[in-house]
Simulated assay, not measured.
Amino acid sequence: MNALSHEFDLSRTTMLPAVKRGAARDADTTKLASQWDAVHEAAAAIGVLAQLGRGDEDDAVKGLPDRALQLGGFEYEMVLRGVDDLAAVMQPGLRALLALSAQGQDTTSAALTLWQEFHKSRDAIIGFAPLN
């Protein structure tokens, strides 16, 4: 029987990214806070299109960027990546909804689906830096 082989040498790799220090980390934190605000603005617009209105934000939502920065390490990196991924999903979704709305089409069902996905994703991201 032949064993599977591969040409990858993983002996010098690290699985987790190194924690950034100084200016690079500050830039990431600024990016994190602005993206966090932006996805919530997009979610508010989606809530209107879903005929739900603008949702309330509790302390767990408002303080996430600061909590992630205080935690640092793996949790910070996961929050940073999660928010970046969430922004990447929200942008085309909102664009599509706005295009449909501009054509006079009912966006309620599609907007509700995207709104629900936003909240599930947001809750998962908050799970990396929960409010104690």
Rank of each mutant, 00 (worst) to 15 (best):
1 M>S: 12
94 L>Q: 08
23 A>I: 12
54 R>G: 15
123 D>W: 05
92 P>C: 04
95 R>A: 13
123 D>H: 05
47 G>N: 00
63 G>A: 10
3 A>P: 10
116 Q>H: 09
59 D>P: 02
48 V>I: 03
96 A>E: 08
75 E>L: 07
88 A>P: 04
95 R>K: 13
1 M>E: 12
61 V>W: 15
59 D>N: 15
129 A>C: 01
31 K>Y: 13
84 D>Y: 13
61 V>H: 12
27 A>K: 08
28 D>N: 05
83 V>Y: 00
86 L>S: 01
75 E>F: 09
85 D>S: 13
83 V>N: 01
102 A>L: 09
112 L>Y: 04
55 G>A: 15
21 R>M: 11
119 H>R: 10
86 L>V: 01
37 D>E: 15
37 D>T: 13
74 F>G: 14
59 D>T: 15
87 A>R: 05
102 A>C: 03
131 L>A: 10
44 A>H: 09
19 V>M: 06
116 Q>Y: 03
45 A>N: 11
77 E>C: 05
11 S>E: 10
54 R>W: 04
102 A>T: 01
10 L>R: 11
82 G>K: 02
33 A>M: 05
20 K>A: 13
124 A>S: 08
109 S>K: 09
18 A>H: 15
101 S>K: 09
36 W>T: 03
45 A>I: 03
78 M>W: 05
127 G>F: 00
39 V>C: 07
47 G>W: 01
105 Q>C: 11
96 A>W: 03
83 V>L: 01
54 R>C: 07
58 D>K: 04
20 K>Q: 07
61 V>A: 13
60 A>W: 09
120 K>A: 13
28 D>T: 03
99 A>G: 10
91 Q>M: 08
129 A>H: 02
38 A>H: 02
37 D>L: 12
92 P>A: 03
44 A>D: 08
42 A>K: 15
22 G>Q: 00
108 T>V: 08
106 D>W: 05
57 E>M: 10
106 D>K: 02
124 A>M: 11
38 A>G: 07
74 F>C: 08
93 G>C: 01
81 R>D: 08
61 V>M: 14
86 L>I: 04
97 L>Q: 03
55 G>K: 15
46 I>P: 02
5 S>F: 12
63 G>N: 14
87 A>E: 06
108 T>A: 06
120 K>C: 15
46 I>T: 05
25 R>D: 03
51 Q>K: 14
63 G>C: 10
78 M>F: 09
54 R>H: 12
124 A>W: 07
17 P>F: 09
73 G>C: 04
61 V>Y: 13
96 A>I: 06
51 Q>W: 14
73 G>K: 00
26 D>E: 07
51 Q>Y: 10
30 T>H: 04
50 A>C: 00
18 A>D: 13
62 K>W: 09
10 L>C: 09
82 G>Y: 02
11 S>M: 04
76 Y>V: 04
53 G>I: 01
91 Q>N: 08
103 Q>I: 06
66 D>I: 12
96 A>K: 08
97 L>K: 02
74 F>A: 11
1 M>F: 10
123 D>I: 04
56 D>I: 15
36 W>K: 02
105 Q>M: 14
94 L>D: 01
123 D>C: 06
63 G>V: 08
35 Q>F: 06
115 W>S: 09
76 Y>S: 01
31 K>E: 08
70 Q>E: 13
57 E>L: 12
